[in-house]
Write a protein that binds this DNA or RNA. Structure first.
Length: 626
RNA sequence: GCCAAUGUAGCUCAGUCUGGCUAGAGCAUUCGACUUGUAAUCGAAAGGUCGUGGGUUCAGAUCCCAUCAUUGGCUCCA
């Protein structure tokens, strides 16, 4: 059976005359007009039977659910096939379809009649689709527009691969997702629903968007392409600190930092096959007849580099790392949101070349620990994210223990997606998904076991037996995109705020860590020397020397989420100790200088430091209202 | 990309449905006064081709068409 399915604003048809003997009787020749409906042009073919009819109506219903349409017109249309069923069979199958779609508002146009018709088709991607339904096998091509260029094989097969969803608990039990009791795992439930059912319902902008502007971190740049952000001094400072921290951790783990080009020749032999597999989502550039594209990850750069290395098994695992500023993905405009999903983003990307599966499995455990620890230190805890592991059935059957160990490390149930066959280049992939205020999931850390690209990029090493082999490659981002970390921190802060707690950034990331407020102009000099003393301890300190009331300046500092405020007046000028207003409690404490520095350092130890990225005196600072 | 909502001063918004006075307010900015004790001192000035481009009209921020951007949903997420 062949079906051409169109989501229409309206259709108008007029039966004109009987075309065949066995056409339907008692047909009125009035014009019929229907609105807001799906029209399914149907050609019944020779071998079709009830099971095909049932399957067809099932698929039609499915896609109508998606587009939220309840009205269906079955329109017999012989021209779709050259292998038609005899009319009596066609009529009876059409009737079967009509009656089995009873929960829809369904009708059919007369069979065997010539009809004139006028049709207005909607313009969204799901509006048009064709289906071919046969007895044994079901195949269908969704959403393919007639005028569209042939979609690549990748996209077609991607829509065909079927996922099996389960939940794996730390004790090793695997439960089908539908049977799992999510009572104590609300966020995992969100992730599961999000991934498998793809169902979401939100009607407000994510809170981090307002915060990123209010805190003068980042904003949209109207003169650029959407999804390319500008970062203000505060934002650049925060971003840079996170970048430095992640890089430091990766180097401690054993990654070697490199730098590779951001654009590549799409006709380079190594690119072609990779490219055809993952088409469409890149920025293209024409340059002197070359067709270049902007990288969407650091993979190519590092693979092409590794290609040059003379590797021995003794060198492995060997790890290359790059902090890509930027990676580019030309996501559909409707998918872009604040700092969560961008077209240009900063991605730490670390590849480990391993000699065999055993080594890669050992390596993936190390990197799992690294990722978890990095997120933790960045201020994102286990309770903020949920893990998903995806793998092929074969890999799981041979490596159950490995998978279970990862789950054990996390210590809570994990969403499992399993494929019968390997479609992607990896056999296993895990990722941590941050769940935000609106119940949206987005991936942070991730790692993959890649069994294809070693060969594709001609990377090889010599093993113990003097045989050349291709390494297995792990693809890890220990933190996920840096922008997304900021998004996660802001969403967490917004959540605190909603719960009635004071929102804040981790102290080591605060653009201003200590603010000094002179009571009157007379104390500005004292403030200056105090500021100097504090900033020599690697603390970002500024002075609000504006001519505003003390209450107002405190309020401003609170609104900037500044943790420590020092008001300097007569009392402080003559005292040994500092009066420190701690935003955490709102109280004013008397501390000696050294005690304060010790308390401060304790909270920022092992974290990178960078000086104030804006004028020290607030009177010299432009007000940024975005 | 599709559907919907939104777009007015640097920011947050009123005015748009029902076309008609000099397009308003608060915050921020500038100037002046005040010299402040832990979340908003007082006064004044300046600030706008109402997202952009067309159209209808005696008259357009307001109605119509197109377009761009943001947000939400769909799709997508290597």
């Amino acid at each position: 059976m062949r079906i051409l399915q169109l989501h229409c604003d309206s259709i108008e048809y007029t039966p004109t005359k009987k075309e065949i003997k066995s056409a339907e009787e008692d047909v009125s020749t009035d014009t019929i007009r229907l609105e807001e409906l799906v029209v399914a042009f149907v050609a019944v073919e020779k071998d079709d039977d009830s099971s095909v009819a049932e399957d067809a109506i099932f698929q039609i219903k499915n896609s109508m659910d998606k587009i939220g349409c309840k009205k269906l017109l079955l329109y017999p249309y012989a021209h779709l096939s050259s292998n038609l069923a005899p009319p009596y069979l066609a009529i009876s199958l059409l009737k079967e379809m009509e009656s089995s779609a009873s929960e829809l508002e369904v009708s059919h146009s007369p069979f065997g009649w010539t009809k004139s018709y006028k049709i207005q088709v909607k313009g969204h991607p799901l509006a048009e689709s064709s289906k071919v339904i046969t007895k044994k096998e079901t195949q269908f091509l969704e959403g393919k527009k007639p005028e569209e260029e042939a979609t690549s094989e990748a996209l077609k097969s991607e829509s065909k691969i079927k996922s099996f969803w389960n939940i794996l608990s730390p004790d090793g039990t695997m439960t089908p997702m539908s049977e799992f009791n999510f009572a104590n795992h609300k966020k995992l439930e969100i992730l599961s629903k999000y991934e498998s059912a793809k169902k979401r319902s939100v009607d407000e902008p994510p809170p981090h968007v307002a915060l990123m502007k209010k805190l003068a971190i980042a904003d949209y740049e109207p003169a650029s392409d959407s999804g390319n952000m500008r970062f203000f001094p505060n934002g650049r400072l925060i971003k840079s600190l996170i970048e430095q921290y992640v890089t430091k951790r990766v180097k401690e783990y054993g990654g070697y930092e490199v730098e590779t080009p951001i654009m590549y020749d799409s006709h380079h032999p190594s690119m072609v096959s990779y490219f055809n597999r993952f088409p469409a989502r890149q920025y293209n550039i024409d340059s002197e007849g070359k067709k270049l594209f902007l990288r969407f990850a650091a993979c190519f750069g590092q693979f092409l580099m590794a290609n040059e290395f003379q590797l021995s098994y003794k060198n492995l695992p060997y790890r290359l790392y790059e902090l890509t500023r930027y990676s580019f993905r030309r996501e559909q405009s409707g998918e872009l949101v604040g700092l969560r999903r961008l077209r240009a983003f900063t991605m730490p990307d670390c590849h480990a070349f391993c000699k065999d599966l055993d080594q890669s499995i050992q390596e993936i455990q190390t990197r799992f620990d690294l990722s978890q620890s990095v997120l933790n230190e960045l201020g994102i805890e286990e309770s903020d994210y949920e893990m998903a592991i995806r793998f092929t059935e074969d890999f799981y059957n041979e490596n159950k223990k490995t998978v279970q160990e990862l789950v054990k490390k996390l210590g809570k149930p994990v969403l499992i997606e399993m494929w019968k066959e390997k479609f992607f280049y990896f056999v296993l992939k895990w990722e941590f998904n941050f769940i935000d205020n609106l119940g949206k999931a987005s991936a942070l850390s991730t790692d993959q076991i890649d069994v294809e690209n070693g060969k594709r990029y001609g990377i090889d090493f010599v093993d113990e037996n003097n045989v050349k082999r291709n390494p297995i490659i792990l693809h890890n981002s220990p933190s996920g995109a840096i922008e997304r970390i900021i998004y996660a921190l802001l969403e967490k802060a917004a959540f605190d705020s909603k719960q009635g707690r004071k929102p804040q950034l981790p102290l080591w990331l605060s653009p201003t860590q200590v603010r000094i407020i002179p009571l009157t102009d007379d104390f500005i000099d004292i403030c200056n020397s105090l500021a100097q003393k504090i900033s020599s301890q690697n603390i970002r300190v500024d002075i609000d020397d504006r001519n505003d009331s003390i209450g107002k300046r405190i309020r401003e500092a609170e609104k900037e989420w500044i943790r420590y405020i020092l008001v300097i007046g007569e009392k402080e000028a003559t005292s040994e100790n500092l009066s420190i207003r701690d935003r955490k409690t709102g109280d004013v404490r008397e501390l000696s200088f050294d005690t304060f520095i010790a308390e401060f350092n304790d909270q920022t130890k092992n974290k990178p430091f960078s000086g104030l990225n804006t004028p020290k005196l607030l009177s010299q600072r432009p007000q940024l209202m975005v």
